[in-house]
Design a protein around this nucleic acid. Structure first.
Lengths: 323, 323
DNA sequence: TTGTAAGCGTTATCAA
DNA sequence: TTGATAACGCTTACAA
């Protein structure tokens, strides 16, 4: 491996001069600098990240943690993060799995964006306590080294319920997510509050887990006990898609017998027939904002927690209830 | 930051003893080892990856490079890679974007799995020439430090065409992928060969680029010149989905007026109506195999290039041609 | 069984 | 403007 030592020898200068030249320091003359750069290129010199990181105590790389790699969910979010980091001359690595938990405490990355339920809040707090900077997208933890960028789940859930009610529906199912999902719990909480405001509505909860299969099972249950036109708020689009799948093999139709609304506005939701009504938010913006917050945290700039706003997408899966 | 030096001081031993103890070496007695471990824990000692990597000249981390993060395509592939690497005590990072190209030459990772058209083959060759180990999934490059695990595109394309012909179709469109896609070019090549075997078939190529939009455009073109039942082989599922989308707004039906087959067996393809016929292969296995090849390459074990086999999934989007 | 010491490839301080 | 040198935190001969 060719190191600055080799360059120094060949150029007849000291390693410190080489280091300065390579880093574009104005301390070294044009002339020597040019010579050194030429030799470096000639020798195919590549700096060693470990050595630099060890010395500088920073890596200029941010890690994003995901529970797993499945789902079409993360693409835009990651793209938003990548763009934002690139603009600020930071690199990005996407991680999942147990092994990767080490990267933050072992200082392979300068900070982490977490959307990963395999991290316990305790673990996260421990890292924060050690001085590591973290932005969390899937729960709430108060610590000076932790910032959160959360969805406005309450607004989203309320929009969904209000929309259903406005359309004249009087029978409502809610299909929930897993209990360890912060987003699901927030949405459910808001739903219950909203439901209280509409006492005339027959309200039922069905336990789900954010998977298509859960949506299918929920649809099955609903159709088995079908006695009138019903509305269903699936706490994510994935489960709503599951409902469509189940319905496809029945006589019942979405937006007719059962009116469905989801949450997330996944790309596939654009292509369902009828178009799924859902709650939308900019995943790209979410990622960009999370990155910005993290970089500020690293720079020591004070930050407030941020919120991602949501909007209602009116598809055809929720329509006016006709007796 | 607490280092082995601090532990050594507190334990009254030398740093080398601490290092040995921490690494579970049998050279140090149970007793001292226990003491050292206790102190390490007490001080919240965390090893520094950069220092270890610098010294050991390896990181035990593999990088996977993707062109971008969009598309539901990569989930299972990454999951396959992650599982395989974890079993072998290697970590995984997923990378995209210009900045990340540095990770391999700068030795942040011990090897790379590449499915990323932003790498030129020259660049890859340069790295291989420098001694870096690479497994490539999206093209063919011959080098001792490079191995490839490629799809059996030829078999897949042939299966698709044969299936269409068996069903009695006599008018065939092929919607191609981008010209810089190795997979697309291989599939197209096989299609042309197959087409030659069936001279009675009216054969037309439509240029596409693997996006939904390309599929929509292709469908538009086909329907505009519609004069008889036609079959279309979309060189990936994404474009086939695009065709469905276009058709949804027309009088024409997939599997009736136009018979469609794709390639990839994306998850969404399971949910199309009618179920999309396509070419399937195990993305998880692809990932696992790629990882294994890479680890062998790193260990210096000789490896042959590998091939991922494909099968035909018969949906309802291709059916018997009825005059 | 433990300690000494060199060295991995950088950066950065201080002198020259 | 350049050079000598220490230091970053760790591993690993080799010596004791």
């Amino acid at each position: 491996m060719v190191s600055i030592k080799d360059i120094a020898k060949k150029a007849g200068v000291s390693i410190s001069t080489v280091s300065y030249a390579l880093n574009g320091s104005p301390k070294v003359t044009e002339e020597t600098s040019a010579k050194i750069l030429a030799i470096a290129k000639d020798l195919n010199y590549i700096p060693n990240a470990s050595a630099r990181n060890l010395k500088k105590r920073e890596t200029k790389v941010i890690g994003v943690y995901l529970t797993d790699f499945s789902g079409a969910f993360y693409g835009q979010l990651l793209q938003g993060i990548l763009e934002s980091l690139s603009r600020n001359d930071y690199g990005l690595i996407v991680c999942s799995g147990e092994h990767s938990h080490r990267y933050l405490p072992e200082r392979m990355i300068d900070g982490a964006i977490v959307l990963d339920s395999t991290f316990s809040s305790d673990e996260l707090l421990t890292y924060a306590e050690r001085g590591h900077k973290i932005v969390i997208l899937d729960r709430q933890i108060e610590h000076p080294n932790i910032n959160q960028v959360l969805l406005d789940n309450k607004a989203g859930a309320t929009l969904a319920i209000d929309h259903i009610v406005e359309k004249g529906h009087t029978k409502l199912y809610v299909v929930t997510g897993p209990e360890d999902s912060f987003d699901s719990m927030q949405r459910l909480h808001a739903v219950r509050q909203a439901a209280k405001r509409y006492p005339h509505i027959e309200y039922t909860e069905i336990a789900g887990d954010f998977t298509k299969e859960a949506g299918e099972r929920a649809a099955e249950q609903i159709m088995n006990e079908y006695d009138q036109i019903a509305a269903a708020f699936c706490l994510n689009d994935e489960m709503a898609i599951g409902m469509y799948n189940y319905l496809a093999n029945t006589e019942y139709r979405a937006g007719e017998h059962i009116h469905i609304i989801g949450f997330d506005n996944l790309e596939v939701s654009h292509y369902t027939k009828p178009r799924l009504s859902t709650i939308d938010y900019s995943k790209r913006k979410w990622g960009a904002l999370a990155s910005e917050q993290l970089l500020k945290l690293i720079k020591g700039v004070p930050v407030e927690n941020e919120r991602i706003y949501v909007t209602l997408i009116e598809g055809e899966s929720i329509s006016e209830k006709k007796a």
